[in-house]
Design a protein around this nucleic acid. Sequence first.
DNA 1: TTACTTTTGCAAATTTGTCGCAATTAATGC
DNA 2: GCATTAATTGCGACAAATTTGCAAAAGTAA
Lengths: 140, 140
Amino acid sequence: MSSQLDDFKELLRNSGNSVTLPRLAVFEVLTKHEALSMQELYQRLAGQIDRATLYRVIELFEELEIVHRINLGWKYKIELAETFTGHHHHLTCLGCGTVVPINESKLEDFTKQVASEHNFRASRHQFEIQGYCAKCQAKD
Amino acid sequence: MSSQLDDFKELLRNSGNSVTLPRLAVFEVLTKHEALSMQELYQRLAGQIDRATLYRVIELFEELEIVHRINLGWKYKIELAETFTGHHHHLTCLGCGTVVPINESKLEDFTKQVASEHNFRASRHQFEIQGYCAKCQAKD
DNA sequence: TTACTTTTGCAAATTTGTCGCAATTAATGC
DNA sequence: GCATTAATTGCGACAAATTTGCAAAAGTAA
């Protein structure tokens, strides 16, 4: 049986990349959290790796589709990609910041259809709903 | 009959904000373009206003929902909000940055349904497709 | 026009993301 | 294991993007 960690290492090796300490560290932090900003990620790594390295690692992880960026207004956060988490879209609470993953396969077909109507080749899509969770609604 | 410009001025006044030259200038530029980055916006304003002011104006416009940001991977662009343009989503080209608005009412119902399933009160949603436009596909 | 409040421009500080390069670490063949 | 080779890292310097304090200028209301 193969663990997520093994899948990750294999993915690196198969693409001609080394399995290094910084890469393992970043991956480990990501498996423990829903979605993190660069800031948060850097802080969680607590001096284990350099900031420039973090950016380079995330850049590589994106190419290999190990992670994705999700956008929240000005900012973005990093999270593990579908291969590792199995979901795609999000409901985010404007009150407390909670991110709830949602899985909506209907959107896949929808995306393809819209893209082809405009002669685009869609390589990714993003669907985000922002609002207030039950708890935050209760506070009002 | 009220113009977009009048609506805009009223919106500012009703919220206790002044109608100033910089604000008018930014609004005018935005009415003339689909979606602009801060860079582009600043350049279009050609020295009419300071960079810091631009950021402050955009911040205010966002609060008043005069504009919103649309996300393109790492980056974002500014565009007039639904009140002024009619609610829409986007197809963005990862090659050249072109933004094509799409209007998909199906998503409204969809959003409501998903939100209620999770006991969320949805206040806004965002649907973005990223890919390559016909021109950029041809370049490969 | 005056008196009062808000907004702006400027300059400086932060924050965020990049780059080149020498030192270090991982992978490979023995 | 050990040496060789290639990939990766950390560091310091940059560059770009965004924020802040404050005095001067512009907008508002009477």
